[in-house]
């Protein structure tokens, strides 16, 4: 399941979407048309890994680890933003 993270100053954030290059030095600046994933109901949710906090631990979470369970994935503007 979720892997515990070694804490350092480097990359305290930094999610990765499956199939999307995230390291700046590996991004190729080619004129190749970028394929963008479209979200659509009835289709598979794009897989990703993202660091996070849960019950006193920093862990690395992967969406596909939650197969077999119902997942409510919520995005919000920011911590401490009132609503």
């Amino acid at each position: 399941m979720a892997k515990e993270l070694d804490i350092s100053c480097a990359r305290p954030v930094g999610s990765e979407v499956e199939g999307v290059l995230t390291e700046p030095n590996t991004i190729k600046h080619e004129s190749k048309k970028e394929e963008k994933t479209m979200i659509m109901i009835g289709r598979e949710a794009p897989d990703f890994t993202a660091p996070g906090y849960q019950n006193g631990k920093f862990l690395n979470f992967k969406l596909s680890d939650y197969r077999g369970k119902w997942v409510l994935l919520c995005f919000y503007p920011g911590d401490f933003t009132f609503v």
Partner: peptide, 27 residues
């Protein structure tokens, strides 16, 4: 990727996705 990031504001909007046990987006 999920279409909820606002690059001008630099934040995510209130997107909420229901994903079933097979990893399929239901709503």
């Amino acid at each position: 990727t999920y279409g909820v990031y606002d690059p001008e504001a630099g934040v995510e909007t209130r997107g909420r996705f229901i994903i079933d046990p097979d990893g399929i987006i239901q709503g």
